[in-house]
Computed example of a mutant assay.
Amino acid sequence: MAEIIGVIERLWRYPVKSTGGERLDSVEVDERGLAGDRLYAVRDADGKLGSGKNTRRFRRMDGLLRLSARLGHRIDGPELFDPLGRPVTDPAAFLRAYLQREDVELAREDAVSHFDQLPVSVLTTATLDWVREAAPFTVVDERRFRPNILLRTPPGTPPFVEDDWFGREGHGGTGARLAFVRSSERCAMTGAPQPGLPHAPEILKAIVHAHDGRLDALAEVAAPGRLSVGDELALH
């Protein structure tokens, strides 16, 4: 029997990895994830992707989170916006000046995935409300955690309820099915400053103390479909 776990309150797509995203009313979901999500990234001459951390695939490039991107209905690439929300006419030239690196460009995904982990992140309002209580002296909203789906859960739902979904499928919208696998391991980006959100390292400290630094539910796409704000999500 299906168990309705919540209603989609907001949908987010991040056309350029590690920059701010765009809110959507509805979106197609394919095998890769939400259509256009993290399809582009800032890439350097070594092939590493701009991120908030240094790893084998990623290079830390401070300041990306102050930018934002929108894909909309464009087919020739995303529109990039500066920290004041103004559109950028020449993304490559702007990024080189902004990051003070001459070797960066805005690149479409090819052989190297732009995703940190799995393609779809779902966060509940129950967990987000817990973060607000745990860090009462800063501004908290879902942009801190970059989910694709913010799910409105019923009153009384406990925080970190997402843990109960692992190994099950969520069905929603028109045919879309998400196979929940695990939660994200959070890093300093949760407290990094971005437009409207000041630096807040206490957020990560609270999550590490209470939940081993993990927060949300990561999923693979089990079946393509379409998701819209207001759709119910049910576990099977």
Rank of each mutant, 00 (worst) to 15 (best):
L233W: 08
V42H: 10
S183N: 01
V208M: 12
L67F: 02
E79K: 09
H209K: 15
R32D: 10
G156R: 00
D25V: 03
R66S: 14
D62F: 11
L67A: 08
N148Q: 08
T157W: 06
D163W: 11
L233M: 14
K53R: 15
G230K: 01
D25N: 14
G72F: 11
T174C: 02
G196D: 02
A219F: 04
A222Y: 05
P224A: 14
A200S: 15
Q100F: 05
D116H: 11
I75D: 14
N54M: 00
E232P: 05
V229G: 04
Q100T: 12
D163V: 09
G36A: 11
A41N: 03
R108W: 00
P15M: 10
L64M: 09
A200H: 04
R146L: 02
T190F: 08
M189Q: 13
G21T: 06
I4H: 02
P154Y: 00
S51M: 10
H171Q: 13
M189G: 02
G175A: 04
P119A: 07
K48H: 11
L178Y: 10
E220Q: 13
A2L: 13
A234C: 00
G196H: 08
D46M: 11
E232T: 05
L128G: 01
V29S: 08
G225M: 04
A188G: 09
G52T: 04
R132L: 00
D110V: 05
V221M: 00
S68K: 11
L11E: 07
R96W: 12
V27P: 00
V7N: 01
Q117H: 13
R74P: 05
Q100N: 14
R226S: 02
L204N: 06
M61F: 14
G156N: 06
G47K: 08
T19Y: 07
Q194T: 11
N54S: 13
S184W: 00
P159A: 12
L204K: 01
G167P: 03
L197C: 08
R38S: 03
L123N: 01
R108K: 14
